[in-house]
Design a protein around this nucleic acid. Structure first.
Lengths: 226, 226
DNA sequence: TAAAAAATAAGTATAAATACTTAGTTTTGA
DNA sequence: TCAAAACTAAGTATTTATACTTATTTTTTA
């Protein structure tokens, strides 16, 4: 019997997965959580074989959650669920140490296959993940698969911040994306307009974009906002 | 017995709702569809009491679907499901003629309450809908609750196009939002940069925004893109 | 506490966006 | 078919963004 915990803020999704798993003899749902914090407590106490986790959740993302849990060296394996077939989510999930990545629109068959593989110690990532990895590696990005265990806490920062933006840059990114001009931002942060311009220039360079719209789109693509 | 059809591209959500409804004696799921086109055929042929529809779906949005179906004067009532607590989705749903609006994160209790009300001929909209309506009305927006039945096909246009943008303006909106400059757009469309500028100026005025980022944000907010 | 990183802000230039107006041409729908 | 709407594109002016560099001060952290 494989024990499973469900982590998703949408009860309908949890119920859906539960319904599927209840039809299977080898699996049982032993717990549910609707947010990352509860999930951490739950997984620590009941130590399921697999935790199926939504990526986008209020407060703490599924990816953050997985990282935090893997630091605790639990035997639980993590399968991420996502609405989005996003390169970056898949990469972040791999880097965070997840053992699987599934789209919510996946078929029941794919879903069960993934659970079967992961429960046996394998890894399953939906979509054409290998092509994503190849593309990323070709583009020169460092797709290091060093699973967690970084002796410092730097991974955490990295995940939320794929481009190594500083605190100020992040702040200005958000304001810029909301439609504020450098002048507006400068006033809001009580700094010079020129300073704002420099921060914006730097963060755009870091993210490899050439105007504010691309910045907005890339930030969205990489899940850096909302 | 209340017959229900589920329309959602995520099978897990469909299964979740099915699981909830199977616990209830008064409800039964008589059909499922994963896209708008299939749903229209399904609803036409089996005429359920209620169709529970996701808003965001590939090809045809749930809102579009509801409009098309209401033109056919079916007795089926529509409850919209959405991940987003968006003013505009709620308004669009009301305008399209939906009888209910629920968030996917709603509790089982709220969900059942909504179905009960709608099945009895009432309307249920989750969240503080009244405050949204008040706010919209105060802001001078025309929140006309004329349910469908417009003798012409104009409603359809309106829903997708809350700001009465022309075809060209819409085209340029999309390109502008993707990060293209007026020059890029002009080249792509084989028109003068000045023409592009005019179109952009006009559409920004129509949408009441003062820069490209606000344009992007508003277009997203109003579900005009992806 | 010294070195690295981050934040600050100026200079200089160019490109692009924004804010309109006017006006000719083409499409379209009643 | 003919008026309205849409598309086209020019003029003019101002503001803002982009693309850097250099350099000082402040904050972090090893």
């Amino acid at each position: 019997m494989i024990n499973i915990v469900l982590v998703d803020d949408h009860f309908m999704v949890r119920d859906g997965i539960r319904a599927i798993l209840e039809e299977e003899d080898d699996y049982q749902v032993v717990g549910e959580a609707s947010n990352g914090k509860d999930a951490i407590q739950l997984v620590k106490s009941i130590k399921p074989d697999i935790a199926i986790c939504d990526i986008r959740m209020p407060e703490m993302s599924g990816i953050e959650m997985v990282q935090k849990m893997l630091k605790k060296k639990l035997s639980t394996r993590f399968v991420m669920l996502s609405m989005h077939d996003s390169d970056e989510y898949i990469l972040q999930s791999i880097n965070a140490g997840a053992d699987g990545y599934l789209l919510k629109g996946a078929s029941k068959e794919e879903f069960m296959k993934a659970l079967s593989i992961v429960s046996k110690g394998g890894k399953y990532f939906s979509g054409d993940v290998s092509s994503i990895l190849v593309r990323k590696i070709k583009s020169g990005d460092d797709v290091s698969l060093h699973n967690t265990k970084s002796d410092d806490g730097s991974v955490e920062e990295k995940i939320k911040n794929p481009f190594d933006l500083t605190k100020r840059e992040n702040q200005i990114l958000r304001l810029a994306i909301s439609g504020k001009t450098n002048k507006d931002i400068a006033e809001e942060l009580n700094i010079s307009r020129r300073t704002t311009e420099v921060h914006r220039f730097n963060l755009m360079k870091k993210m490899g974009v050439k105007n504010a719209l691309e910045l907005s789109n890339k930030a969205r693509e990489y899940g850096m906002i909302s």
